[in-house]
Design a protein around this nucleic acid. Structure first.
Length: 411
RNA sequence: GCGGGCGUAGCUCAGCUGGUAGAGCGCCAGGUUGUGGUCUUGGAUGCCACGGGUUCGAGUCCCGUCGCUCGCCCCA
């Protein structure tokens, strides 16, 4: 074992790991494009205020989990812990609040200083979608439908359930929060130690406690539905209608919560039971207050993000390793003419490789090892006649093919 | 920050109540100087995570450290 290891919570993506990862991004990119989303790439580090503002009052809790550092000019910078804040900042700094709606897809690394566990890393990767500038519940349903289609295209939809909830508007949330505090205060004696702390700090979080006793108390807790304003209830009802219209199956889960103030109305998660404690593979909701936090005008928005590592663990169909064609010169004199054949194949779009050394036997061995689907064997006799021996590595059959026909025969 | 499990060859792992390091796969070379994959013969590879302790003797027992892993907390 070598002395230098990747730092805790990071890992190398090599071979199959990278193919899985890339397959997810490619698929999400293609599906989101069909919904009219355009891909953005924002910096992976930002002024710390981009994130501290978006975190609002709970910042002291979460700030401890950010990778923040000072640059040489003394500015505090932070490796992005999530993608939405940067997209909203970019929207504002590029003046795109004048060009709404914006439909955005992104993919890339995120960073959180957390204890690693299954499906949880310090450098991880997300894909995300944001629909900015639309207040209608149709937008919420559409962005969810987009996520659902991505999961379907990845072949993992059957392992995943969409759970939706509403957080209501500001008035709904204020009333609900008060009702929850009343309820849990009355049941303090049965709450776990952790949840007693949550009661002080973030009472909504008690609802998704993993503690057995808490869960029993939660079963009798008030739900937000009794506290929704008329407008908020109508919004939620429309969302559900539209989801049905898009053909997206879902269940309602009133315990889905969001900690931050700028979240309202729609909250949803695609969850699986196959990933241990990290069951959420894609989560999102409506965040009408965030663009304003970034210094823009009040702007409605809805979106989601999904962890690529978790999606990767659910992928059943691993993209196959590419199978090249191996060009094999026999003897030194054949090497230069073989290069011309090699380039002919490459320029025709065929993955082709030629070993750097070795006799015929060694080169065929090597070709087999790299998973070649065929070998193009060129000796002096073949070159003189303008042909090649093409050996199919799957069937083992070999036949003579004119050099000019190689690209079409090997396609 | 807290708790459980695990660290032996490139990989997956075996190694008993302490006696001086193993297998499979992979890798390298030969059997074949114009034919891979199959078959066959041979070969290389380890600070047994690190440091200390007990012992005539430690991969094995004890303590500490580090790392990995699963979970708690947190989850933007």
């Amino acid at each position: 074992m070598s002395e230098l290891q990747p730092v805790r919570g990071t890992r190398d993506l090599i071979g199959e790991d990278h193919r899985r990862h890339q397959h997810i991004i490619d698929t999400a990119r293609r599906v989101s494009a069909s919904y009219g989303l355009e891909e953005w790439a924002t910096p992976i580090f930002e002024d710390t205020r981009v994130f501290s503002r978006s975190l609002g009052e709970s910042s002291d809790v979460v700030t401890k989990e950010m990778y923040s550092f000072q640059d040489r000019g003394g500015d505090s910078l932070t490796l992005r812990p999530e993608g939405t804040a940067g997209v909203c900042r970019a929207l504002v700094t590029n003046g795109l609040t004048q060009a709404l709606p914006q439909k955005v897809f992104y993919a890339g690394p995120m960073f959180r200083y957390e204890r690693p566990q299954k499906g949880r890393y310090r450098q991880f990767h997300q894909i995300g979608a944001e629909l900015i500038g639309t207040a209608e519940p149709l937008a919420d349903a559409e962005v969810i439908a987009c996520g659902w289609d991505i999961l379907k295209a990845l072949g993992i939809a059957h392992d995943v359930v969409l759970e939706v909830n509403t957080l209501g508007d500001r008035d709904s949330r204020t009333a609900y929060r008060a009702a929850l505090i009343d309820y849990f205060t009355a049941h303090q004696a049965g709450l776990s130690e952790d949840s007693l702390a949550r009661l002080e700090r973030n009472p909504l979080r008690i609802l998704d406690s993993k503690d057995e006793g808490d869960r029993r108390i939660n079963a009798g807790a008030p739900t937000i539905h009794a506290h929704l304003t008329e407008a908020a209830a109508a919004f939620y009802a429309k969302l559900k209608d539209y989801l049905a219209g898009f053909g997206v199956p879902f269940v309602e889960n009133p315990s889905i919560v969001r900690g931050l103030d700028y979240y309202g109305h729609t909250a949803f998660e695609f969850v699986t039971s196959r990933l241990g404690a990290q069951g959420t593979v894609m989560g999102g909701g409506r965040y009408d207050g965030l663009v304003e936090e970034m210094g823009g005008p009040p702007t409605p928005a809805v979106g989601w993000a999904a962890g690529i590592e978790r999606l990767s663990m659910l992928l059943a169909d691993v993209p196959a390793a590419p199978r090249p064609v191996a060009v094999v010169p026999v003897g030194e004199a054949a090497e230069a003419p073989a290069l011309a054949v090699l380039q002919q194949l490459r320029h025709a779009g065929i993955r082709a490789e030629m070993a750097y050394r070795g006799n015929l036997k060694r080169r065929l061995e090597r070709a087999n090892r790299i998973g070649a689907r065929a070998a193009v064997i060129l000796g002096e006799t073949e070159i003189a006649r303008g042909v090649a021996q093409v050996k199919d590595f799957v069937s083992g059959a070999q036949q003579e093919v004119p050099v000019a026909e190689l690209p079409t025969r090997l396609r």
